[in-house]
């Protein structure tokens, strides 16, 4: 039972990260299509933002790892 709740937690963390990274990626695409010459700068900023969001989601995943034990 604890295992399944942990899986639920991992799923919820992934929903949050999905929404967040989706937003970042979408807006970055928009930015690049508006200003293709700034693509490399936008890309780096996008990766940083995506990594920060992903970090928050991974906290959730790690907590659900701990729940597995």
């Amino acid at each position: 039972m604890i295992g399944s709740i942990a899986a639920l937690g991992a799923g919820l963390a992934v929903i949050g990260a999905g929404i967040g990274i989706g937003q970042v990626g979408g807006k970055a695409m928009e930015g690049i299509s508006r200003q293709p010459e700034a693509a490399s700068k936008i890309q780096t900023a996008m990766i940083i933002a995506a990594a920060l969001i992903e970090g928050a989601a991974l906290f959730g995943v790690v907590v659900s790892f701990l729940g597995l034990k």
Binding site: L52, E54, L58, V62
Partner: peptide
């Protein structure tokens, strides 16, 4: 701390 968790969790996952 976030750096630590990010690398650990990504590779482990």
């Amino acid at each position: 701390f976030a750096l630590m968790i990010r690398l650990f969790a990504n590779i482990t996952a």
